[in-house]
């Protein structure tokens, strides 16, 4: 099983690194970091704050967009281009194929987030801004968010077109970032709003867990510039993300297994 998963993952990695859009995202992230330097100079004595905020936002935004882009296309094109006929006729289970595709994507996204992170750290170093453990934790959380978003995209791609999958995944990513507002709506909203917010909270992954800087965590406001979350929090948030990834991939595998490749 491991050999088959690795074979699909490796092939997906090979496929993904040939997609030029990825390099466009890379340029955008480097551009965002350069912009952070300019903004930092403009904001008096706030170079460190601006650089960290823009850098992390760049990783989260462009990492998630890349995850959606890869997730909605890589599985769909296998069916559309009929390359699936060669693979699915071999002794591989459909779920292994879906998981292998995800692992390959995860590998590409991990490399990308790594490069994004290094670009950010490089920019911070250029401005003599120290790279604290808070920054590293924030990068790890952003990486986990990207991996969850990739699983969301693969899930939709297992039964839908890239266009619709892209819209659904993007919507879920935005809603997933708004969980504190949804929780607030459950507490204070009117009947129907409360019901909708409750259902949404149950079916949407809590992506806000991965972008907590400037927000309250268990009553205390945490910030990547001062007191940030502990490694314990990072571990728990990652487990939460992992649970969503497993769940989403399980549903994707079930849906993909039911499909005919005519």
């Amino acid at each position: 099983m491991t050999a088959r998963l690795w074979a699909i993952a490796l092939n997906t990695f090979r496929e993904a690194v040939r997609i030029r859009v990825l390099y466009g995202f890379l340029v955008l992230v480097v551009g965002a970091n350069l912009l952070a330097i300019v903004l930092g100079v403009m904001a008096n004595n706030e170079e460190a704050r601006v650089s960290r905020d823009v850098g992390l936002a760049g990783i989260s935004l462009f990492g998630s967009l890349t995850a959606i882009f890869l997730g909605v296309f890589l599985l769909y094109t296998e069916v559309q281009r009929r390359t699936i006929h060669v693979i699915a006729s071999k002794p591989i289970e459909r779920w292994e194929f879906v998981v292998g595709k995800y692992l390959g994507m995860g590998l590409v996204l991990s490399v990308l987030v790594g490069v994004f992170g290094l670009a950010m750290i490089g920019m911070l170093a250029l401005q003599d801004v120290p790279v604290t453990s808070a920054v590293v934790k924030a990068i790890v959380l952003a990486w986990m968010e990207v991996l969850v978003v990739a699983a969301i995209a693969i899930f939709f791609s297992s039964f839908s077109t890239p266009f619709l999958s892209g819209i659904f995944a993007l919507a879920l990513w935005v809603i997933g970032r708004l969980t504190p507002d949804l929780e607030n709506a459950v507490r204070t909203g009117a009947g129907s709003i409360r019901a909708v917010a409750k259902v949404t909270l149950a079916v949407v992954p809590d992506l806000h867990l991965f972008a907590v800087s400037g927000r309250a965590v268990e009553g205390d406001v945490v910030s990547v510039h001062a007191d940030f979350v502990s490694w314990g929090y990072v571990g728990l948030a990652s487990l939460h993300g992992l649970a969503w990834i497993v769940g989403l991939l399980a549903f994707a595998a079930i849906l993909f297994s039911r499909r005919d490749f005519a």
């Binding site: 074979a7 490796l10 092939n11 090979r14 281009r81 009929r82 006929h85 060669v86 006729s89 591989i92």
Partner: peptide, 23 residues
């Protein structure tokens, strides 16, 4: 398969390596 479609970025040895791994 009929009119087979392969990963066009692979070479033949790479394609056969992929298939061999699946087996």
């Amino acid at each position: 398969p009929e009119s087979p479609y392969f990963y066009d970025y692979l070479t033949v040895p790479e394609l056969l390596d992929l298939v061999g791994r699946l087996f």
